[in-house]
């Protein structure tokens, strides 16, 4: 139900853009105004969300340790899984952000009769997530060829590497295949796995369909219904250099692509997609496991009512005395 609804919403929005791209009066809206509004929403929204997180302090050092602590000098410590230093934390975070270390650990548990609980490898989610995110990043960077003039060498290098197999013309980008395959898997997984289907919200499907629509329209444009690429770049450069104009040669599918992108980036700050920034701030991951060596300060600490020794001794005075235990006051 959630899935169907979000599919319909994305399809309607896509159709809206397709029509908007061909109606003269709406081209500026879809080609200039909405993209600018979306970028502004993204920048302000992301900054706002991050600042909100930053304003809430981390009162306690609650590292989730996934390996041996540093203790006795002869005992081998897990410097990545249970980091003791800032360097260790940095490496742990790098593994987490770049390679999805925690997801790599994923297993699946299955209860068989007996009862016998068995565990198996379960790396597909990790693989698909990694394939999606890296492809997305590379595709994003590749798109810089539309936004930068002259095209920087690293962008060309990346495009060359991505099209390494030189299949067809324009050459097939591997990331285009990977991203669609990965998104397809992630969607299929939400449908197939009853547990994941049960927890999936409208927004989960919405984000997926938005991304599939974005990648799909891009793939259609590159391989099947090519727009005038020079005109596309003129539009993109116009946006970046604040001299916006919509060339007459662009329309249709390109507007679908641009609009879905605008929606995605505008949707970012309001959604779970903020995990891209949040992952850096996760206190269970980005803190060293050196609690006992270095005091962590809680900025909002306040005094609490305690039961002091004096009160305690007074309350149990006779009993302490009868037991012959040492006392402050006889």
């Amino acid at each position: 139900m959630n899935a169907l609804l979000s599919l319909i919403v994305v399809l309607v929005l896509g159709a809206l853009a397709y029509v908007g791209g061909s109606v003269e009066g709406l081209r500026t809206l879809f080609g200039v105004i909405i993209p600018y509004a979306a970028i502004l929403t993204f920048l302000v929204g992301v900054a706002y969300r991050v600042v909100r997180w930053a304003l809430s302090p981390v009162p306690f050092r609650i590292t989730t340790t996934c390996g041996q602590q540093k203790s006795l000098p002869w005992m081998k410590a897990g410097y990545l899984e249970s980091p003791y230093t800032t360097l260790g934390v940095t490496l742990r975070m790098a593994l987490e952000v770049l390679l999805f270390r925690s997801l790599f650990r994923n297993t699946k548990a299955e209860l068989r009769s007996g009862p016998q609980l068995v565990y198996g490898e379960n790396k597909y989610l990790w693989l698909a997530a990694l394939a999606f995110h890296w492809s997305f990043l590379i595709i994003f960077l590749r798109h810089l060829r539309f936004f930068m003039q002259p095209v920087p060498a690293f962008v060309n290098l990346l495009s060359d590497a991505d099209g390494f197999f030189q299949i067809g013309a324009p050459v097939l980008y591997l990331t285009d295949v990977f991203i669609l395959a990965a998104l397809g898997y992630l969607l299929w997984r939400r449908f197939r796995d009853p547990q994941v289907r049960y927890i999936s919200l409208f927004t989960d499907y919405f984000a997926l369909f938005l991304l599939i629509g974005l990648a799909g329209s891009g793939v259609l444009m590159r391989y099947f219904f090519r727009p005038d690429i020079v005109a596309v770049k003129e539009l993109a450069l116009g946006l970046v250099t604040f001299t916006p104009a919509v060339p007459v040669q662009v329309g249709g599918l390109f507007f679908v692509h641009l609009f879905l992108l605008s929606l995605l980036i505008a949707y970012f700050p309001f959604s779970k997609l903020m995990h891209f920034a949040g992952v850096f701030l996760s206190p269970t991951r980005n803190l060293a496991n050196n609690n006992r060596a270095k005091r962590h300060v809680n900025p909002w600490d306040y005094p609490v009512k305690v039961h002091t020794y004096a009160e305690w001794e007074e309350e149990f005075h006779d009993k302490i005395k009868a037991a012959g235990l040492p006392m402050e006051k006889e």
């Binding site: 920048l43 930068m148 003039q149 920087p152 003129e234 450069l237 250099t241 920034a277």
Partner: peptide
């Protein structure tokens, strides 16, 4: 955050520095 914002708006600074226009 500032690093991210500068990075994400990098094309703007780049084109500004290169004196790029939208001319094809």
């Amino acid at each position: 955050l500032v690093f991210f914002l500068v990075l994400i708006t990098f094309p703007v600074w780049y084109d500004l520095a290169a004196g790029t226009t939208s001319k094809g």
